[in-house]
Design a binder for these strands. Structure first.
Lengths: 361, 361
DNA sequence: TTGTAAAATTTGTCCGTACATTTTGTACCA
DNA sequence: TGGTACAAAATGTACGGACAAATTTTACAA
């Protein structure tokens, strides 16, 4: 219907199937070929130019641009054709367990011939927004792997996520997701079951008063808390709000930077014989604080947590913690994204935990 | 001179200083205002449209687009205005010492109110090229921090680096640079001095036959090798090519994956009493290989290396290694880039090494 | 007051022309 | 052979006009 678009389409497919070698016909020739005015041809060429398919040189002609893929292929003609452009958006990159998770993701993606582009939100929604804007402006993007930022609270960037979805860009969340976004895949720890598992374990060890420390700005914290509460209820144990301490990213930075505040801790866990911590990082600080306060671990207070990271190994005593086996969240999420990109059947996953018992309980 | 560009410039600055509220005047009004034809006005508006400054709606008008910054600022009005968009291109992200270096860079950039976008080349020039193409297509990019890829060999991506330079995008190399690129800043380890330092140290310990294992695809390997050779020469020690083993990324992957090949190692270091390794990762494998072959470290063979990472700590015996203090390469490079962006005076740096003596020598 | 139809407004598409600027090719001359 | 000058060719800039399509405003009628 619209001439210049039709002409642009014709020329584009001509370029892509290699009908033209290096240059396009001149504007004059195209005018005759398509029986339109020169302005219309120029409009069509402007489209291709803005798509970076061609370059135009005054006095010379319209040249077909080498695409990024071709220019890469020229360097390594042996590499298979398909090289996926995948972005990974995480909260942190070089802290805590994140390097390990990234390594899992990288290795899984590398097995599928792709190198991820990494973005760190630092768990700040403002940063997340900047990153999403960057992603939306990329012209090749085969898929996105996202660790939700502050998933415990309503997210103000859902509009940008929706734009990604509207463009049919495959999207998989891991660790935390945004429940408001319908029909998106996510690969999550089974945090609810994990919280329950830890209560199970402590109950069997004879503990009856169990405190909890959870992170409020990640949905993982909410889920672990829910599992903890359900576990208590299952055994008819008393649930006491004052035995639950909530913290968030900002609070951790300010208060728990060097060691977990002994005053707050003792207030929360007073009267308890065990405490479930959101993760090893917090647990290690709790153990240090307790030990400094003269409360023996595990004799006076058992400490258990999630992640089973090097923090739990380096702490004295070592901390009983939940972890995954071979198929951890990072690897599974990357695998799911690849399947999604290839339009193979796939679904959201809940990855179960395995308990590793150590000396802190 | 060229009307539509002048008009575009006028309108652009009008938009940026807020002369227009939400919409621009109609094409007809602009025609009268600038005394040009409607086609010329449309050309000017097309420029602004391609710059994503305005949106045009048929039958309605030309609307000023909300920029990404404004949309971020709306979320956090309290944040300071300047938020730099900085890309960091490294070889690896989650292996060896790279998480630590990234943490240094991140913390230095965070102190300047910026969160980096991370790209990993996996030490593959083809991947590097893809990443550079992505960078060139970003519409806001305040600076780039690059760890050169395979700096030991001529780099086929210099054309893309030159494009970045031509666009006046501040660029700082760290760890390794491309000498062919003139007038670029770089922050490097003083590898030559490091190689010499290790020879100095071993000579003073009484060693006279010293082998070396170096990485061939990074310029750091060449420099450390040159320092090693200069050190030997300084003390009049014999230099024997057969006592130098070169390896590269691909070779390491295939042969040295799990442990350093004892056959090759013993062939190289036969007749020597000490070996200088390119880094702790290789050194740890060498120590393992030697111990398994019944060669005691350090009694029969002293092992020293670069980086002083956790590899050197976890090895038994722990490995004598060179490291940096507070002002390591990552931090200095980030600082240099910030200065460059702010157009403050800055220069290339060579960061000196400090020797940490342990049990392997 | 509300809903609908018509009119006016605004941008989108398309044509034709003219001349400028840059590149490329050719002819000529030394 | 080589350099210069000119011509030709190609894209860039600019003008004018006409009609199409979408949106907004206005007018009118129920």
């Amino acid at each position: 219907m619209i001439k210049y678009k039709q002409i642009a389409d014709t020329l584009r497919s001509g370029i892509q199937n290699g009908s033209y070698k290096q240059t396009l016909p001149t504007e004059q020739q195209l005018c005759e070929q398509f029986q339109v005015s020169r302005q219309t041809i120029r409009q069509a060429l402007a489209v291709l130019q803005s798509e970076k398919l061609i370059e135009r040189r005054q006095g010379s002609g319209s040249y077909i641009r080498e695409t990024a893929e071709e220019s890469s292929e020229r360097l390594s003609a042996a590499t298979p054709a398909e090289r996926l452009s995948i972005a990974v958006v995480t909260t942190y990159i070089s802290d805590y367990i994140f390097p390990g998770i990234l390594r899992e993701i990288e290795s899984e993606l590398a097995a599928n011939n792709s190198t991820p582009l990494l973005f760190a939100t630092q768990n700040q929604v403002a940063t997340e927004r900047r990153i999403l804007n960057t992603l939306l402006e990329m012209d090749v993007l085969d898929g996105v792997l996202v660790e939700g930022t502050k998933t415990g609270f309503p997210n103000p960037n859902l509009d940008l996520y929706q734009k990604l979805i509207d463009r049919d860009i495959p999207l998989v969340f891991f660790h935390g997701n945004y429940p408001e976004l319908k029909d998106t895949l996510s690969v999550l720890d089974d945090n609810f079951a994990g919280g329950e598992m830890l209560v199970d374990y402590l109950y069997q060890k004879g503990h009856r008063a169990i405190a909890g420390i959870f992170k409020s700005d990640d949905i993982q914290g909410h889920q672990r808390y829910a599992g903890y509460a359900a576990g208590l209820h299952k055994y008819g144990l008393p649930f006491d709000d004052s035995h639950v301490l909530w913290y968030d990213t900002e609070l951790k930075r300010r208060i728990f930077e060097h060691y977990f505040d002994p005053d707050i801790t003792s207030q929360v866990i007073g009267g308890c014989s065990a405490v479930i911590c959101y993760n090893d990082e917090i647990a290690a600080h709790v153990v240090t604080g307790l030990t400094q306060s003269g409360i023996a671990v595990p004799e006076k207070m058992a400490v258990v947590s999630f992640d089973n990271s090097h923090y739990s190994e380096l702490s004295v005593p070592r901390i009983t913690s939940l972890s995954h086996g071979e198929n951890n969240v990072g690897r599974q999420a990357a695998r799911t994204l690849i399947r999604l990109i290839r339009r193979e059947p796939c679904q959201s996953l809940l990855v179960p935990w395995v308990l590793t018992e150590k000396e802190s309980s």
